[in-house]
Amino acid sequence: MSAFADLHHADEPLLLPNAWDHASAHLLAAHGFRAVGTTSLAAAAAAGLPDGAAATREETLRLARTLGPGPFLLSVDAEGGFGDDPDEVAEFARELYALGAAGINLEDGLGPADRHAAKIAAVRAAAPGLFVNARTDTYWLADGEDTTRRLDAYVEAGAHGVFVPGLTGPREITGLVRGLAGVPLNVLHSPAGPSVPRLADLGVRRVSLGSLLYRRALGAAVEAAAAVRAGRGPKGTTPSYEEVQSLSRRNRGGSGGTASPG
Rank of each mutant, 00 (worst) to 15 (best):
L41Q: 13
L41V: 14
L41H: 13
A42M: 12
A42P: 09
A43H: 07
A44I: 02
A44S: 15
A45V: 10
A45L: 14
A46M: 15
A47H: 11
A47R: 15
A47M: 12
A47W: 02
G48K: 08
G48P: 08
L49S: 06
P50A: 01
P50R: 08
P50M: 06
D51M: 09
D51I: 01
G52N: 14
G52T: 08
A53Y: 03
A53S: 04
A55V: 03
A55E: 15
A55R: 12
T56S: 14
R57F: 09
E58K: 07
E58D: 15
E58G: 11
E59Y: 01
T60C: 02
T60M: 07
T60Q: 10
L61K: 02
L61Q: 05
R62W: 13
L63D: 10
L63W: 11
L63Q: 12
L63A: 09
A64N: 05
R65I: 02
T66N: 03
T66Q: 14
L67V: 10
L67T: 05
G70Q: 15
G70M: 02
G70I: 10
P71L: 00
P71G: 00
P71S: 04
P71R: 13
F72C: 05
L73I: 06
L73N: 09
L74I: 00
L74F: 06
S75A: 11
S75T: 03
V76P: 01
V76S: 03
D77L: 01
E79Q: 11
E79K: 04
E79D: 15
G80I: 01
G80D: 15
G80F: 01
G81C: 07
G81M: 05
G81S: 03
G81A: 02
G81W: 07
F82H: 11
F82R: 04
F82C: 06
G83R: 07
D84Y: 09
D84L: 09
D84S: 11
D85C: 00
P86W: 07
P86K: 08
P86L: 06
D87W: 07
D87Q: 15
D87K: 11
D87L: 12
E91N: 05
E91F: 04
F92N: 10
E95N: 11
L96E: 08
L96H: 08
L96W: 08
L99T: 08
L99R: 09
L99Q: 13
G100A: 03
G100H: 09
A101E: 10
A101I: 12
A102F: 04
A102P: 04
A102Y: 05
A102V: 02
G103D: 01
N105D: 06
N105M: 00
N105W: 00
N105I: 03
L106M: 00
D108E: 03
G109M: 14
G109E: 13
G109C: 02
L110P: 01
L110A: 01
G111L: 08
G111M: 07
G111T: 06
G111F: 05
P112L: 02
P112Q: 12
A113E: 14
A113G: 04
A113H: 01
